[in-house]
Design a protein around this nucleic acid. Structure first.
Length: 595
RNA sequence: GGGGGUGUAGCUCAGUUGGUUUAGAGCGCUAGCCUGUCACGCUAGAGGUCGCGGGUUCAAGUCCCGUCACCCUCGCCA
């Protein structure tokens, strides 16, 4: 019997409840307390007229968070004392025996504290935080969501296969956590940034349809939507293509979101070419819940005499803008001025604007705007009376980033986000195969080097690498990247060409992933797949601003665990065993450093 | 590595231009009273190195410098 079970139908039953004292209401004579467990809350009553004085005395010692076992008889509450606000509010348990299983110190915060508690404190006492309803709900929904995903995939003939945590470092990709080998001096395992290599080998191994709810670890700087370890739905299938991946992922999400959250997910998800996403939304993870699309305005402003614009266009840059309908009145001069430092944060020089109010043009662009340009703007984006046009001129990359971030910022400020809990999923497709790296002065794989390039003619990769698209795709929802995947290269020759183009020599390739390439010489099937961040998905479904509350024991932005103190120093003896020596370490703790 | 924010009682916060009484409030805690509460109520009490270190000043929670922790973010995250 749990603390959430009892109803009027249990009247007169003798039950024992185990749980935590939630609150005590001592009336001097009558004494009430609520016993709480994961399933609910039940009121217990002691009446001095009915029970032994010793029992009442013992009950008076009770304090919040003590752990008890209470035995008593269920009874319907007298008329006016029914509490309709609680599922168990029709009944109470008349205690006949009380066992204190464990007292509790006064906790730094109570599960019943409604208001915000400092997150640092919550993380330090995470086991207390877990008693709070919000976190309990998160973990229960996480459990049910994962369970549903497994059910759907099982029905679709996918099998879950676990892959190693102690694995081999992979070149490229994110920074990895390393684990020193005791047995092999100077050698290290890496913790997997994802099961990428293994899942492809599982395809070579003939499993046909694989998935895993897999832990991934990345040693990169953290954010609200990034933890050093997180959980992915990792999936791979053989003898299929993009369409099969889209179909199964859409099914998994639609079915499990319907089952667990009772929300409808319309399928198929819309698809957007990467190039169009960048043009229209400035980012590769657009929030499609609102419009306010970016407008290409280079040709309209060309030759208008605006020096900044002319210089940018002459240097091969672009001019783009956002047309804020009704924005002339909604954004004050002060609001608009504040946008310049905002976009400067993304590398732009500033924002120029044009306002039309009662037929009058205003703003720095007005003196460069003749009637022809007004007409052109009207045709391009419907710019008219009462509207505000914000433009950024710069290199394309900077313009995209600035306007993309500005678009999201304005959506918040102008309240453009629908409040209907809409889940705007989309597939971003046709990614470029290669990105030019200024740092390394070479092309790097945009997704990863096992992604199939899609050449428009043989040899395009070598001739026009920047124009080759990749058979890679991202899953985006409400402006968050939830997952990404690709059709993998399964033929040795194509893999060799990609490596060669990336400047990975055959020797290097053999040294770094020889085992992987070798596998592909033994009958690798065509295959493709995807990895989907499950905490991010849950955070969006539950409208949580960060993913920490989807994880039982999360880490801080500096990758510390405030509860157990990880990462910790280790005894010298252990370092020696691992053939490690720590150098250049600052004195530990917050004390002053020795001169 | 860069930018922004926060740090005062166990918790959530207030604290004016640097100075007035002993740095406050609510919740929690402790004690007493209370027989139908359910955030029980009433009365009283305890509880503070103002994150830490330095500096300016007759005087610092308040100003300056440094530092630590946490949050948000840019870079980064194939």
């Amino acid at each position: 019997m749990t603390c959430g079970d009892l109803r009027a139908q249990h009247d007169q039953q003798v039950v024992t409840l185990n749980g935590w004292i939630d609150v005590v209401r001592d009336h001097g004579g009558l004494l009430f307390f609520d016993v709480r467990d994961r399933f609910g809350l039940t009121q217990v009553v002691l009446d001095p007229a009915e029970v032994a004085p010793a029992l009442v005395e013992e009950a008076r010692q009770l304090r919040p968070e003590w752990v008890v076992a209470v035995t008593g008889r269920v009874r319907r509450r007298p008329g006016a004392s029914v509490n309709a606000a609680r599922p168990t509010g029709e009944v109470e348990v008349v205690a006949t025996a009380l066992q204190i299983l464990n007292p509790s110190k006064t906790p730094p915060f109570l599960p019943t504290d409604e208001g915000g508690v400092n997150e640092e404190l919550r993380l330090r006492y995470r086991y207390l935080d877990l008693r709070r309803p919000a976190l309990r709900e998160s973990l229960e929904l996480r459990h049910r969501f994962f369970l549903e995903i497994r059910r759907v995939l099982d029905r679709e003939k996918y099998i879950e296969v676990e892959t190693p945590m102690l694995t081999r470092m992979t070149p490229e990709g994110s920074r990895e956590y390393l684990v020193p080998s005791r047995v092999h001096p100077g050698r290290f395992y890496a913790l997997p940034q994802s099961p990428q290599v293994f899942k492809q080998l599982i395809m070579v191994g003939g499993m046909d349809r694989y998935f895993q709810i897999a832990r991934c670890l990345r040693d990169e700087d953290l954010r609200a939507d990034r933890q050093p370890e997180f959980t992915q739905l990792d999936l791979e299938l053989s003898f299929g293509d993009e369409e099969d991946v889209f179909a199964i992922i859409e099914k998994v999400l639609a079915d499990s979101i319907k089952a667990v959250f009772h929300r409808d997910v319309p399928t198929p998800f819309p698809r957007l070419k990467h190039r169009d996403a960048m043009l229209r939304y400035g980012v590769d993870k657009p929030d499609l819940r609102f419009g306010l699309e970016i407008q290409e305005l280079s040709e309209i402003w060309r030759g208008a005499g605006f020096r900044v614009v002319d210089d940018v266009l002459a240097a091969g840059g672009v001019v783009r803008g956002l047309c804020v309908k009704g924005g002339a009145a909604r954004l004050s001069r002060k609001d608009i001025d504040a946008l310049t430092p905002f976009v400067q944060g993304f590398g732009a020089k500033g924002v120029a604007f044009l306002k039309q109010e009662n037929g009058q043009l205003a703003g720095p662009l007005s003196k460069f705007t003749d009637a022809g340009r007004i007409a052109a703007l009207n045709a391009a984006c419907g710019f008219g009376d009462g509207d505000l046009l914000l433009i950024v001129a710069d290199r394309e990359r900077v313009v995209c980033k600035s306007l993309g971030e500005l678009r999201n910022d304005l959506a918040r400020k102008l309240d453009l986000l629908p409040k209907d809990g809409r889940l705007a999923f989309s597939w971003i497709v046709d990614f470029p195969m290669f990105d030019w790296s200024d740092d390394e002065q070479r092309y790097v794989a945009a997704h990863h080097p096992f992604t199939t390039p899609l050449e428009t003619y043989p040899g395009q990769m070598e001739k026009e690498p920047g124009k080759v698209t990749a058979r890679a795709y991202d899953l985006v929802m409400n402006g968050w990247e939830l997952g990404s995947g690709s059709v993998r290269i399964h033929q040795r020759e194509m893999q060799a060409r990609v490596f060669e183009f990336l400047g990975i020599t055959p020797d290097e390739a053999r040294e770094k992933f020889g085992f992987f390439l070798e596998a592909f010489e033994y009958g690798a099937p065509p295959h493709c797949g995807l990895g989907l961040g499950l905490e991010r998905t849950l955070a969006l479904l539950l409208d949580r601003p960060n993913i920490r509350d989807l994880v039982a024991f999360p880490k801080t932005a500096s990758a510390s665990d405030l509860m157990n103190g990880a990462p910790s120093e280790v005894p010298l003896k252990q370092l020696k065993e691992l053939h490690l020596q720590v150098v250049d370490v600052e004195p530990a703790g917050g004390g002053p450093k020795k001169a």
